[in-house]
Design a protein around this nucleic acid. Sequence first.
DNA 1: GAGTTTGAAACT
DNA 2: CAGTTTCAAACTC
Length: 624
Amino acid sequence: MDVVSPELNSLLPDEIMDTEAIEDIPHSQSDGTTVQSEPDEDTSVPMETDTPVASESGFSTTKTTDSVTGTSITTSGLQKLSAPFTISAANHQIILNKVASSQATEAAKSAGSPQVIKQEGQKLLVTAIGKSGQPIVLQLPHTGSKAGVAQTSGDTKSQTPQFKVVTIGGRSELKPVVGSSTNQVTTLQAQQLKTVQNIKPVQSVTVGGVSGSQFKTIIPLATQPNVQQIQVPGSRFHYVRLVTATTASSTGQPSGPSTSSIPTAKPMVVSTGAVRMSVPIVPAQTMKQVAPKPLTSTAQVVTATQTQQRLIMPATPLPQIQPNFTNLPPGTVLAPAPGAGNVGYAVVPAQYVTQLQQPPFVTLASSSGFQASAGIQTQARLPLNGLSTAETTSRPRKPCNCTKSQCLKLYCDCFANGEFCNNCNCNNCFNNLEHETERLKAIKTCLDRNPEAFKPKIGKGKEGESDRRHSKGCNCKRSGCLKNYCECYEAKIMCSSICKCIGCKNFEESPERKTLMHLADAAEVRVQQQTAAKTKLSSQISDLLMRTTPVISSGGGRLPYTFVTKEVLEATCECLLEQAKRAEQTHQPQAEAERMILEEFGHCLMRIISSAGKAKVDCASINC
DNA sequence: GAGTTTGAAACT
DNA sequence: CAGTTTCAAACTC
């Protein structure tokens, strides 16, 4: 198993590594240039996590207990993935194997409807780095097209696993992966391992493909407890690091003496040849803390208590990770190394990914931008900054209306939240795949100006303070902090000592605030009542429509309405015609004739109703 | 829907 | 860091 050196990881930029995720780790870097520590630790403002993605993005996940042995997951509109991966609950290893071998193929078949992606010889490990230095290693080793390594489609049986592992938030001391050939684990590695006893939901996503190639990613979901997540706190961006391996050849999956990988797990075939990117879906829910567990598997997988996740999307098969990644912002596309072929890495905020993974999607080939570019973006669905309770609901983000910022400045909510613009009303928008270069540059500019620019503004305050507070505080002057102009008020939190507002009325005892709250509550109650009333009315109408539909067939339907049979209708019509004839014979004026007919119709209806009611009573008397 | 107000972001 | 300008959302009419 080939492993990316820890040194290389240490070269990754903060934005990539999201070093906040490992703030508890003794920073080995003395210069601090590559370590972005959480600001004011004593007053740390751990930013809120984003709301879960999975539940909002239409993913359906098949869950298993204890460990995942291959989950067929379908994203709405996306290609269904069937089971071809293995998750080791013991070591949190998620392995996506190509379904190259006959065994794997059989396993995939046994899973139901396995979908084999072309591009064989690739193995994908999805892990991530966690807090306290324990890396959740997101590994995307795959067999590539490394020179000198024969890699042909369908010729993978003889291949041995080749892994290229990069740890998120890795540190130089990390030795994230142990070669499968050796099955050796250092003590440190063992210490770094944590386990999730029950890794249940796992989500795999396929986003388009290029030239027949497809990329799949499996990520753990946080929709349930005991779920491993790849989260990196301190940033609103959610990342999953996917790193392609340099070498080809890969057979089997790493297995250790006591690995909990399910033997029957089906490997996932991950295409690599023309792969442009992989779009994992990373839930933004709070990560569950997992207990360390000695390493028992060859592949190192660690979970962490992180709240944010990041993604590195492999653009193309990468011979080796490019060094000199320092200080690249989220979204940076790492250019191919000289002689490395058409490869690159893209660090993309998960929000983008979230959008990307949503249907409809197109193949990456349709993207004109960098490798990081993915398919069509759809409406962002993630509440990203936790600014308000309302925003943490599942409703899509409001479309922006930017006109001058090109949606590449923090004025733009979409951009500020790490999302592509989609279905927005903006003009001259550059916050899309077609302007990836500009967008990345803008991201970098923002981060240069404020490294925390993309972090949630609302987080926890000091102990004893409110659970949530604005990281910077507001600066309101005229709104009294009781309008949505105020970011604190908008987030439904009280202003704090760090606010610089004037005439603030957004504090606990504020009568104005209480009044507003009461009004808001009352309004909410009214809305709920109205909604309930509408629902009830709609139900009643629906029921009435159903009931008034004549039931011709005997034996079914509600008795009173079964009387409106064809015969009854014919008889009624005859009565009406007879009444019309009578009016005509007596030379009644038209108005009088109409009155007579209507009167007769009324009589008919009364007789029908009377008969129906009587029949109902009779039926009830005999327990009909 | 147009115009105004507001405060964060960007700029100097 | 402070003051000013720009910007887009919130708000009002």
